[in-house]
Amino acid sequence: MRNSTAAKVWGRRGLLIALAAFAAGCQLRADELGGVSTKLPVTTHRAALASPPAPATIPDSLALTPIPLLAEVPDTLRQAIQQLHAALGPEAADLRPEVLEQACVGYLTLHPTGRIERAGLLAVADMDLPNTTPRLWVLDLRNGRVLHHSLVAHGEGSGKLRATRFSNLEKSACTSLGFYRTAGTYEGIHGYSRRIEGLDKGQNANAFDRYVVLHAADYASPKYIQQHGRLGYSRGCPALPPEQFKEIIASVRVGSMLLISGPGLASRWLDGRAAGKRFLARGWE
């Protein structure tokens, strides 16, 4: 009798654990809905069913990782990026010049390839900053303006206060570094969401298949920080505050560029020489 009772208790407990793991995911594929037929993805990963990743090996701290200046960036472009940073004003005070340089060089290198169709706009997230800091910016390059500045969450597998581990693997629950092209929007369980396509093979090329998207999350809000001392975690999505997500998602419409920067970023698009030639020919156009 005791064994039978214990089995029932553990059976119920196992079911509750499985349901909790299922609900924790950032997105769920439409083909996993048990017969529900829809062409639109419903936001929550199958990675939610994966085992928790190993804890980050880098100690959690507020010490940011130094970023070397990119090679072969012409002085004219570097000065233009410095002038842009100054023009962006106080809202860009926490946007490190080295991260802005990465974003601008990538934008200038990518735009003429046709992968980025929207000129004069870029979004950049510095995941090396603590998640209590607004670390996402949407920038108007032509007019030197910050269009949006907000908090953004990183993946559960990437670390605690700061993101220290990054992965392109489907079951990693990690944020993926690199350059992205924004794709279409849809209505999922998180509401209005936008797909993003990774442009860096080996770093973020699986993002679209992982259903890593821009969406709203209560755990990405100032209120959550007040209650818990930090943001919560996604399953790899750059999740946004409920108060700002609609405007941000609408502004980075199809064909815009997003850079998710962090320790270990390496990209073929960080080509200082190519970016310099493009800037001399077309400026930020």
Rank of each mutant, 00 (worst) to 15 (best):
L121M: 14
L121S: 02
L122K: 05
A123S: 15
V124D: 02
A125N: 03
A125K: 02
A125G: 11
D126T: 03
D126V: 03
M127V: 10
M127T: 13
D128E: 03
D128P: 01
P130H: 02
P130I: 03
P130T: 03
P130L: 02
N131Q: 14
T132S: 14
T132Y: 02
T133V: 15
T133F: 02
P134Q: 13
P134R: 14
P134T: 10
R135D: 08
R135V: 13
W137F: 11
W137Y: 12
W137L: 14
V138K: 09
V138Q: 05
V138E: 05
L139N: 07
D140S: 08
L141A: 07
R142Y: 05
R142I: 13
N143T: 06
N143G: 09
N143A: 14
G144L: 13
G144H: 08
G144Y: 12
G144P: 09
V146A: 02
V146R: 04
V146Y: 01
L147Y: 02
H148P: 13
H149V: 11
H149R: 15
S150N: 13
S150L: 07
S150V: 06
S150W: 01
L151W: 01
V152K: 03
V152C: 13
A153K: 06
H154W: 05
G155C: 07
E156A: 15
G157T: 00
G157C: 02
